[in-house]
Design a protein around this nucleic acid. Structure first.
Length: 324
DNA sequence: GGTAGAGTTGCGAGAAGGCA
DNA sequence: TGCCTTCTCGCAACTCTACC
């Protein structure tokens, strides 16, 4: 076998480098005898001798000094053995990672979600997954349903929790329905409405409101709810889709902000993001249209994605089964 | 000189690959 | 799919070298 001039991995493999040669090299290095090493790797001594000779020709240098009572690594042999041990360990690790990928215990899951379910469903799931499946990496996109649908069809996310709007052909997606998204009215903790007795929804309309731009899902749901209850839309409205800006305005002024109930629950919890906010208990059954878990019909999910979707569906079912 | 370990060579069986 | 070729590996036999 000619000694390869090119020492790239591909050239070495073309020249005859094989994994059994590296296994044998390590066995001989450990045992110090070709016959013992041959037995350990499951071959006869002549075969091992031949294999070692091939490896030395490929390496272009003697790897062992032969002695009457065994063999001793040369400097080149010690170097190659150290690298071979590392390479075999890397290969074993790679196979373990492939195994995890195939079983769904590892991999990347790209989730899209609207804000409310993101806090209510996705956040607790990720928290639990960090313990049970630490090798699964999450990439979470929080946006509006139309933007999430666009990301889904561009394959930038694996699935999303949100709504299927008019820009999506229902034949192209699979939707697991979750339920309506309740709305809460959020104000700062020393808002005058909190001191009022027999507070009604109509009382809130005397204050400025901050909510999505006209046409936004949440805003349409709020306006439709007011209409059903013979109430006019808020006369003074500041439009923004930014939750951060909404929080800033609530903190400084007497505005009323309709937000997803799950978001409001997090924001008013003491010790959480901002304990200085309160929920006005006048929103009744105000809610945005039902949302669901949306995935592409013709896309086969990776094992990790399938696992996470199943766990989300379990949580959704358990939540629906809970009283209240 | 006996023993142990390594190397070489020839032969054959079985697996793998190429091809019609 | 079947045939042919090539490759890999095991087995057996032998030689060489060094130690006891």
């Amino acid at each position: 076998m000619p000694q390869p001039q090119d020492k790239t991995a591909a050239a070495l493999i073309r020249a005859g480098l094989r994994l059994p040669q590296l296994r044998l090299l390590l066995a001989i290095a450990d045992i110090g005898q070709i016959s013992g090493a041959a037995a350990q790797v499951g071959m006869t001594q002549p075969a091992a001798s031949r294999l070692l000779a091939e490896l030395e020709r490929t390496a272009g240098a003697p790897l062992f000094d032969r002695h009457p009572r065994g063999v001793v690594l040369t400097q080149a042999g010690a170097l190659l053995a150290r690298r071979a041990r590392s390479a075999l360990r890397d290969i074993a690790t790679a196979f373990a990672e492939v195994d995890m990928l195939a079983s769904g215990a590892g991999g990347v899951v790209r989730i899209g979600t609207v804000t409310g379910p993101g806090l209510e469903l996705v956040l607790p799931l990720i928290r639990d997954m960090r313990v049970t499946y630490p090798e699964i990496e999450f990439d979470v996109t929080v946006d509006t349903s139309d933007m999430l649908a666009e990301a889904l069809f561009a394959h930038r996310i694996d699935f999303y929790i949100g709504r299927v709007l008019a820009n999506v052909n229902p034949r192209d997606v699979i939707v697991r329905h979750i339920g309506p998204e309740p709305i809460a009215l959020l104000v700062r903790k020393d808002h005058p409405l909190l001191r009022k007795t027999n507070l009604t929804l109509q009382d809130t309309l005397a204050h400025d409101w901050v909510m999505q731009a006209p046409g936004g899902l949440l805003r349409r749901a709020v306006e439709a709810y007011l209409l059903r209850h013979d109430l006019p839309p808020p006369s003074r409205t500041l439009s923004t889709s930014s939750l951060l800006l909404t929080l800033g305005i609530i903190s400084d002024t007497n505005v009323v902000a309709p937000v997803a109930r799950s978001v409001a629950d997090v924001l008013v919890s003491p010790g959480r993001i901002n304990g200085d906010l309160r929920i006005l208990d006048v929103a009744g059954d105000m809610a945005v249209d039902p949302y669901g878990l949306v995935s592409l019909r013709d896309a086969a999910p990776t094992p990790a994605v399938a696992r996470i979707m199943t766990l989300l569906e379990d949580r959704i079912r358990n939540r629906a089964a809970r009283p209240g």
